[in-house]
Design a protein around this nucleic acid. Structure first.
Lengths: 165, 165
DNA sequence: GATTTATAATTCACCAGTGAAGTAAATTAG
DNA sequence: CTAATTTACTTCACTGGTGAATTATAAATC
């Protein structure tokens, strides 16, 4: 369906890299699909993707804490949105927000015990889906897939750097 | 960086399918990155992703026409948003909107000659980036990658169907 | 040591996308 | 043939996310 569309565009615009465009489109579609799937799983917990990611990063930290700036970097969110996310999670008492002693510009965000319990309760129901996504993938498939995705990631990193400096 | 985070969560929650979760996260990151890259390329043309996709689907149609409902399906957009998209593209005279004769509920959307010229002008500057994304991919890599992505897509389709009916 | 510059976070105004309700036409059922 | 149901799209109110301006603190420069 999508393939036909791209093929036809390729006929009309002959210099187009058809195979690459197709792959690119596939990645976009799959990314969006996984995103939807994830959001559906999160909805019952009244979390969205970026709130979930933020909480998971805090959870994964040995000391359970970070700063908005750092969380922005790791989640690739803007600072504006991180403020909203923190507000939402603080309101639900999953994290706390306090100001740093050494640098009073900095805000210290920390996951609460309730936040940790919440994560531990929320994660396991997601496991079957995550497993099913890769049903029928052999060990070799997994290795290949990982390799190719990271190769693509490296290329994209290069592309991204060119635009900024 | 992400890998360490997932590994650490895997230690805290032992039943977690770590490899699958990692792959899933990679797909989400890459999808988002490609999306950002695409949006950056579209910005100078004052188009966003969904408007671009809509226009490209019309462009790829032999008769250059479709209906909002069909475009919703192909772009996986809600009808609400398709109304906005059509408004935006009509305002720029890239498409026309008329009502169908056989079924007066239906709206007929058609790409204009100006719309076709616009697409032909806009596409070529994107080709180098699309090519660069897959720089260093051998023919075998491309085949493998395509195979694995479609396998994943098939699994996701199954997952999606379960939730709806 | 005062002033400039840089950094961290927040607030505000806006854009893109969604769900629920509304409108209008076509189809089905009684 | 009328009434109920379904289909196609639009409108409205809201959520999530972004860029530009703001505030507060720290670091650098003169």
């Amino acid at each position: 369906m999508m393939d036909e569309g791209i093929d036809r565009v390729g006929q009309l615009v002959p210099q187009m890299p058809v195979a690459e465009a197709r792959m690119c489109r596939l990645m976009l579609m799959l990314g969006a699909t996984i995103d939807r799937e994830l959001e559906a799983k999160l909805k019952p917990n009244k979390l969205n993707h970026s709130e979930f990611l933020t909480l998971m990063i805090l959870y994964s930290r040995p000391d359970g804490s970070s700063t908005p700036g750092e969380l922005c970097e790791f989640t690739t969110q803007g600072a504006t949105n991180m403020t909203r996310i923190a507000n939402a999670l603080v309101k639900r008492a999953l994290i706390t927000r306090g100001s740093s002693k050494e640098d009073r510009r900095r805000v210290l965000i920390r996951i609460t015990p309730a936040g940790r319990r919440f994560v531990q309760k929320m994660l396991p129901p997601m496991f079957p889906q995550v497993g099913a996504m890769f049903g029928g993938f052999s060990a070799g498939d997994m290795r290949q897939f990982d390799r190719l995705l990271r190769k693509l990631a490296a290329n994209l990193d290069q592309l991204g750097e060119q635009r900024l400096p």
